[in-house]
Design a protein around this nucleic acid. Sequence first.
RNA 1: GGGCGUUUAGCUCAGUUGGUUAGAGCGCUUCGUUUACAUCGAAGAUGUCGGGGGUUCGAAUCCCUCAACGCCCACCA
Length: 880
Amino acid sequence: MAKQEIPKAYEAKNHEDSIYAAWEQSGFFNPDNLKGEAFTIMMPPPNVTGVLHLGHALENTLMDSMIRYQRMRGRKTLLLPGTDHAALPTQAKVEKMLMEEGMKNPRQELGREKLVEKIRPFAEQSRTTILSQIKKLGTSCDWSRLAYTFDELRNRAVNELFRRMYEDGLIYRGLRVVNWSVRGQSTSSDDEIEHVERTAKLYTFRYGKDVPITIATTRPETKLGDTAIGVHPDDPRYASFIGQTFTADVGGASSLRLKVIADQQVDPAFGTGALGVTPAHSQIDFAMYETQKAKGDPIDLIPVIGSDGKMTSQAGVYAGLPVEEAREKFVGWLKKEGLMEKEEEITQNVGISDRYGDVIEAIPMTQWWLDVQKSIPGRGKSLRDLMREALTTGLHGDEKQKVIVNPDRFTKLYLDRVEHLRDWCLSRQIWWGHRIPVWYKGEEMVVGQQPEGEGWTQDEDTLDTWFSSGSWTFSTLGWPDKTVDLEAFHPTSWMQMGYEILYLWLMRMVLMSAYALDEIPFKEVYIHGILRDKNGQKFSKSLGNGIDPLEIIEKYSADALRFSVITGVTPGNDSRFYEEKVEAAQRLVNKLWNISRYILTSVEEPVHGQAFKELVPTTLADRWILSRLVRLEEEVSAHLQAAEFSQASEKLREFTWSDFADWYLEISKAQRQGETKASTDAILVYVLEHLLTYWHPIMPFVTEAIWSHFDDHELLMAHNWPVLRMVDLDLEAEAEMAWLQEAIGAIRNIRSENTVAPKQKVTVVMVGTNVEMHKGIIESLAGIESLTFASQPPTGEYASVVISDGQVFVSLQGLVNKEAERVKLGKEQKETESYIASLEGKLANEDFISKAPEHVVATMRQNLEDARKKLERYVHHSES
RNA sequence: GGGCGUUUAGCUCAGUUGGUUAGAGCGCUUCGUUUACAUCGAAGAUGUCGGGGGUUCGAAUCCCUCAACGCCCACCA
């Protein structure tokens, strides 16, 4: 083979797109072209609300590193890509854009169909962008199975799931108090609310002069809808009032009828111990309303706040006022009437819509709900039971149907949440999303799919977006049909997600999968943290600290980006991202490139694919580097298998830069001068091709680019992961090499301390050891002119250093600072002495000898022996 | 009000079941570089592993406690 021309630096731009195209064209992204046991990852579908951010870069790196490793290990791998229509966030985003363009109320001005027609192209555009960005990151997913939560197949799955749950009595329609966003004009689930601490005013007052009970509230205006006064059943202050009804003519609004009821949930220690019960505008009060109804002692429900955030007609003279004005007016009236007893500042948590940012109002509405506690017909278990089982005993006590969470602490959070789960409000009043699959005609109602015939109208509401993403692991495989894919790839093997969607997504995937298939959605889930900026702040638009992953790829390389988001990161913990990290990673990429460049351009005929047995390790360095490679394979495999990406990449970096580049390559330069050339060349090529293979899952592009310089046309991506044998470890060579490295380091140290220029050759005498066979290595790596071995220290101007197995003397005519030498040796001697003392102490301890494992004691004894030998040399030296 | 996480070199972080004298990257200091790579090489400095207590032959690692920072949950109206 002719010598190759390889550029000095790796220019990622010239390679990445064409490499990705070659991968795609090869067909190996598609498991149909692969053999072996299935290994499946469903890509968490990015929202079509814009472009990819760094978090996606992290996720794609995690998924792709895992899938590439498994593919190379001979698994039939499927990484299925997709996107999420993200109902509310997408509609909110488009509405915001329209409003920025001058529209006041897009929903009102456009109406349902026209608004959806505005959202669709935006979503499509966003999808296209995102999909191309995923390719830029190198993600090896099967594009032939691309899915979208809002396409026809997924819609069919969603409708079918809804129908089954309805028929099982789990989905019901009911009047309940919902979380209402006035700004968004829609309900939210409990999980879509953020709690923000605020200061608020707590008002303490009586409803009227004839009402003997004082209550406290931060929302006086809602008191216009009060229908009861709640007290704790054991509270002696109010015991005599329980059951009585008082009337009050509040603020000229309406006449309230307030029944005093006893309820365990009332905290006698808060405020006055009496609670104004507003069933229409409080979850807890609504629960009391239901309890009273069940008891046969019902109280009324009076909505005084409407979906527009203004007071309703039932609020009398307050009707039409925004809540804040109503509050002010009512407070004014209370004061005027002398009913107000106290006003104080308190801090409280308010629920905020996480998308629209306004305070959530509790409003009674008829909505669709999913009951998580009801027993599923024929199964004797509720959805809650299934969700619990999946992470504890495994579904039906089957260990194989258990989801393993990494790190484990998130299991606890999940389970805690499962126990406190309330019914899930499924319906939304936005328009971008799967429409509730229910049709009405007069009194008739059909669920699942549109019935034949005229006159049917579909429910106006849409489904919570998590209803469709919850079914992602199987809707993507063709469910509800019994497809080959579903059989082959479900439950999926591995999933990764950020902890911020643990509740939103993990729980719902488990719920949906357990319900629809009686299977867990995946066997293992890896929880990652979020990427923060250099100062530990979240990346956000408002802070303006965002980093576009594509710009990073453009400036450095996709491999450097991948390496830098994955390294130094542990599951479940946040990490910081900044360009210096990418720079360091890019240096590593370039290092690998140049190692390869050196080997491929200087070895005349790189023999590709040699077997370990065919190699002829001739020198110590040969044996050593092969042993190190065996160790590397073992470690990297174990780390990747365990999803310890950071550790895997650290091991690879260490081997690449230190063992291979700094040591073996340098030694090889001498070895290639003589008769060991052929064997050295073979080993260089062997180690290189293995190293590229092991790097490939993490840095796929540069490894593939280098691989293409080998003689055949096989893609590295489709190459088998070479498994080496532990029996080929050469412990003797590793120990001997470690000593040699120490000796060379010692000589270099003396040179450096005495500022001997690297070019200046020195004369070295080594005492107390005989390693003449490695003379050449020491000479070439330590810049030595003459290396001799002696039994006695030489006389004359020498600087010396004591090493584990001997002493090194470096001649330094006129350069030695004898005093400095003495001080240095004296210091080292002291350190050795105290080290010996500590070892002797340990070894003199009977308990240690009897209780510590043998190998620990043996190592300690060996260390002591070595240290004593070393000390002798110091003593000897100071005497001479 | 509960719960969780973090605290290791100047900075960012590893440290796998407790076991040699605690590591990496970046930064810093010195010297060098026609010879794969200045996106480089060699050498070097820097740590009472947040504080205190305990268990153990042995603790960065396990237990208790305190502190600082961060996060999550919760219907004190």
